[in-house]
């Protein structure tokens, strides 16, 4: 356990010393400032134009979901490109050889790296997500129903991709691991869209394949949790009433929380991939 915490602290210190944290912080402040300014302008224009308060709230909730999608994408990229070199770069440079010749397990390196990177990603997700929600509330008066859960789902999605990137980096070069992770993330998101459309058209095989893909990589299912946490209940009821199954095909709309078995699977999936990463590095000749 001691070695795990040493490596976790080292990982966080590396992110701080190499200015990764500061770059993320700067980009977050810039993004939050620009999007908040945009929301404030939209709200002011809508209120000047006799829009009802429901319409204003609906509009802000949709903008917030789009901003959350932008953050989810940035977080996914951040997770992929933090996780991809976490092991591969150290193996390529030889840094890992000196450390793994010490009396530590290779699994300690994986778990320590993972804890450190998860701390960074979750802190970034929580900081940027809650700051965005707070500033939007300040300029529009709109508060999503479950802001904390939105951040939890946003973080979970990033953790899933981070874990996958670390598994890949035990066997592939850092750049290849990152690239594969980004492509898989995109495919997972598209699988979610196809599943919704397939359901609307009752296209059984398409739904089956798309659903299987979503379980193979749970990032899109977790993204749906973020959306649901940000949607006002009235919007959900109205959309379902008007659009029914068609509304579910919208990649920026969710009709319900992700089911509990899926959430349990997501946790199990993450632990499974972590175990696979430890096994993969453990079996590798350095």
């Amino acid at each position: 356990m001691r070695a795990i915490w040493i490596i976790a602290r080292l990982t966080i210190a590396e992110a701080a010393r190499r200015r990764i944290l500061w770059v993320l912080l700067g980009l977050t402040l810039l993004s939050v400032t620009l999007t908040t300014w945009g929301v404030e302008r939209l709200v002011s224009l809508a209120r000047e134009g006799d829009a009802s308060e429901f319409e204003v709230q609906f509009g802000v909730s949709q903008v917030l979901i789009l901003v959350a999608f932008m953050f989810s994408f940035v977080l996914a990229m951040t997770a992929a490109f933090l996780g991809a070199p976490a092991v591969a770069a150290d193996l390529e440079s030889g840094v890992a050889h000196a450390m793994l010749a010490r009396p530590i397990r290779r699994a300690d390196l994986i778990v320590g790296r993972w804890i450190g990177l998860v701390a960074i990603v979750v802190a970034y997700a929580a900081g940027s997500g809650l700051l965005e929600i707070a500033t939007v509330r300040f300029v529009s008066g709109y508060t999503p129903p479950e802001p904390l859960l939105a951040v939890v789902f946003l973080s979970a999605q990033a953790v899933v991709l981070l874990t996958l990137a670390m598994l890949l980096s035990t066997r592939l070069p850092a750049i290849a691991s990152g690239a594969v992770c980004v492509v898989v993330f995109g495919l997972g998101w598209m699988a979610g869209v196809f599943a919704g459309i397939g359901r609307f058209f009752n296209a059984g095989p398409l739904v089956d394949v798309a659903e299987a893909s979503r379980w193979l990589l749970p990032s899109d299912g977790l993204w749906r949790g973020t959306i649901y946490a940000l949607e006002p209940p009235a919007v959900v009821l109205t959309a379902l009433g008007r659009g029914g199954p068609a509304a579910a095909a919208n990649p920026f709309f969710a009709t319900a929380w992700p089911p509990t078995p899926f959430l349990v699977w997501s946790i199990g999936w993450t632990l499974l991939i972590m175990g696979a990463a430890a096994f993969s590095l453990g079996r590798r000749d350095l």
């Binding site: 070695a3 040493i6 080292l10 840094v95 050889h97 000196a98 450390m99």
Partner: peptide
């Protein structure tokens, strides 16, 4: 190691502290 390389962002003393701790 033959291909020696240590965390370039650490100070020399910190590299030794890391290995002493491990």
């Amino acid at each position: 190691p033959e291909l020696f390389r240590y965390q370039p962002w650490l100070k020399a003393r910190e590299v030794l502290e890391l290995h002493a701790a491990l």
